[in-house]
Design a protein around this nucleic acid. Structure first.
Lengths: 113, 113
DNA sequence: TTGACGTATGCCTATACGGGAATACGATGC
DNA sequence: GCATCGTATTCCCGTATAGGCATACGTCAA
C-alpha cells in the first residue's frame, strides 16, 4: 500500500512545502495563478497542479475573472489540523514551563542536523 | 521527483494517519511497543517502522527497559506545526465569527464526501 | 476570424512509500 | 549455553507521487 493520497485529507495536502508556500502567499488575499507563479518562482503547471490538490481538500476556492482564475484561502478547512494539535497543547505547555528543558530541545535539534 | 520523505519534517511525518494514532496513544504517557501494538491493533513491524519515522523527526523518544522499549512523546517538536498554523488563526477566526458561513462549510464538507 | 494570453491537463520518469512475511537482534530466565 | 520474549530490520510489492515538457482549453482584443 502506498502513501495516502495527497488529496485524502488536509494533513497530506499540506505535507508538501510548495503547497504551504502557496497557502502562505494567499494569506494576504485572493491571487491569480500568474501572480503566484511570479511570487513563488514556480512553473505555471506546477502551481496549477498544487492548486488543484489544495482545491480538492477545500483549502482554496477558485473564482473566474476573465481569463484569469483568482484563488482564495479557505481557512476553516484547517480546523482538523487545529483540533488535532490542540490535544498536545497541554503536554507542550508543561514542557515550555521548564525553560531549561526547552533550551536543551533546541540544542539537540541543532546537533541532530 | 517523488513526494518528500516522510522523515524530512514534522509535516510529512504526521501526514500518515497511523502515525497520528501512535502519537495520540502516547499522550497519556510512555508506552512500550507491544502496548501500542495491542492498543492500536497494528502489526508489530508496522508499529516499529512508524516509530522509527516519528523518532527521526524527534516526535518521540525511546528509552530501554529490559527487553522492552518505552516510547514517549516529545511535544515540543510539534512547534513548527503550531507556528505555521498560527498565521491562519486570524483569518480563521474572522470566518468563525460569521456562524452562517461556518455552518455552510460543514454542509459542503459533508456533501462533498 | 484570428491571434495572443492565462490557465489546466496529459504524458513521462525516478523515487519513496506502507504493508506483509520472514528473520535478525538484544536481553532475560533457567 | 539455550530457549524465549520483545523489537528492529530486511526484502518484496503495487502504487501515487512532483516535476518537466508539450499541449489543449477558454477568453479576450482587434
Amino acid at each position: 500500500m502506498p502513501r495516502s493520497s495527497t488529496t485524502s485529507d488536509v494533513f497530506n495536502a499540506i505535507a508538501e512545502e510548495r503547497r504551504r508556500d502557496i497557502l502562505d502567499a494567499l494569506v494576504s488575499g485572493e491571487k491569480a495563478v500568474g501572480t503566484l507563479v511570479d511570487d513563488l518562482s514556480m512553473s505555471q503547471p506546477q502551481v496549477s497542479k498544487h492548486l488543484r490538490v489544495l482545491s480538492e481538500v477545500g483549502l482554496v476556492r477558485c473564482r473566474a475573472d476573465g481569463r484569469r482564475r483568482l484563488y482564495r484561502l479557505e481557512p476553516a478547512r484547517l480546523r482538523p489540523l487545529n483540533d488535532w494539535l490542540a490535544k498536545y497543547e497541554q503536554a507542550w505547555n508543561a514542557r515550555l514551563d521548564r525553560v531549561e528543558d526547552y533550551l536543551k530541545e533546541l540544542q539537540e535539534q541543532g546537533a541532530q542536523q
